[in-house]
Amino acid sequence: MGDWIDEVVEAFSDALDVQTKQDRGLHRGDIVGVDRGLYEHYAVYVGDDRIIHYAGADDDFGGDVAIRESPFRDFLGEETTYFVCEFPESHKPPYKRQQFASSVMQDIRWLMDVFQESQYHLFSPEETVERAYSRLGERDYNLLTNNCEHFAIWCKTNISESWQVEELLGGDDILRLRMS
């Protein structure tokens, strides 16, 4: 009789797990994020309740930071909510354009926008996942120029950018980072 109950519980658990995945609204190739309070952490959802992201061995910033594949639940950590990014058909900077005192700075900003627009490409879900897997194991993390958001956005759009860093540093500083 115990075997019968175990089979029913297992079948119920499997059905509940499938329903939970459907309720999440996650699709292979989605760029997902979780708000950690001081920052947002980003990843590529690769299916089967797994993500690929830049993270330490035990958490977002622990030792040995690398691009890793992890269970979605580990990505969430103690958080109970997450978001899925939506991307426009063409590259649009997520920040408001600022007026610069120097017309040279305006020209450089315009050129950077034109360059990014030419590089912007929305990859299919399969291509996005393939790009994420292509960098698995990479250990080139840099908070300002190659963080989890840079990685995830690049997988989807071919542009390595972090809206958080741009907002934190402002237009002029991020422009200098891009040019260096």
Score class of each variant (00 low, 15 high):
83 F>W: 11
102 S>R: 05
90 S>T: 08
77 G>Y: 10
85 C>S: 06
99 Q>F: 14
106 Q>N: 13
90 S>R: 03
96 K>N: 14
83 F>S: 02
80 T>L: 01
101 A>N: 09
91 H>W: 10
83 F>E: 05
92 K>M: 07
114 V>I: 03
87 F>P: 00
83 F>M: 09
115 F>W: 05
94 P>W: 14
97 R>V: 04
81 T>I: 04
101 A>F: 13
100 F>E: 09
96 K>H: 12
78 E>T: 12
81 T>C: 06
99 Q>C: 09
105 M>A: 14
77 G>V: 06
91 H>R: 07
76 L>N: 09
80 T>I: 00
103 S>D: 07
109 R>E: 10
114 V>L: 02
105 M>P: 01
114 V>N: 01
79 E>A: 14
85 C>M: 11
93 P>H: 13
83 F>R: 10
76 L>T: 04
112 M>H: 04
81 T>R: 11
112 M>P: 00
107 D>E: 03
112 M>D: 02
90 S>M: 06
77 G>P: 13
101 A>K: 12
108 I>Q: 06
92 K>N: 05
98 Q>A: 08
108 I>A: 07
84 V>Q: 01
105 M>H: 14
114 V>E: 00
114 V>Q: 01
109 R>S: 14
99 Q>S: 13
89 E>L: 11
85 C>G: 00
92 K>C: 07
101 A>D: 08
100 F>L: 05
90 S>V: 05
85 C>L: 09
106 Q>R: 15
91 H>L: 05
90 S>K: 05
103 S>A: 08
82 Y>M: 14
84 V>L: 03
91 H>M: 03
112 M>E: 02
92 K>R: 08
81 T>Q: 12
98 Q>K: 14
77 G>T: 13
89 E>P: 10
107 D>R: 09
89 E>V: 06
82 Y>I: 01
103 S>I: 13
112 M>G: 00
89 E>M: 07
86 E>G: 11
115 F>I: 00
77 G>D: 08
89 E>D: 15
96 K>E: 15
112 M>L: 08
102 S>P: 04
104 V>S: 07
97 R>I: 04
85 C>F: 06
100 F>G: 03
79 E>P: 02
110 W>V: 03
78 E>Q: 09
89 E>Y: 12
96 K>Y: 10
103 S>Q: 07
108 I>R: 07
80 T>Q: 04
81 T>W: 03
77 G>F: 10
97 R>P: 06
100 F>R: 05
104 V>M: 09
104 V>E: 07
96 K>S: 15
79 E>M: 08
107 D>W: 08
91 H>D: 06
109 R>P: 01
78 E>K: 11
97 R>K: 07
104 V>C: 06
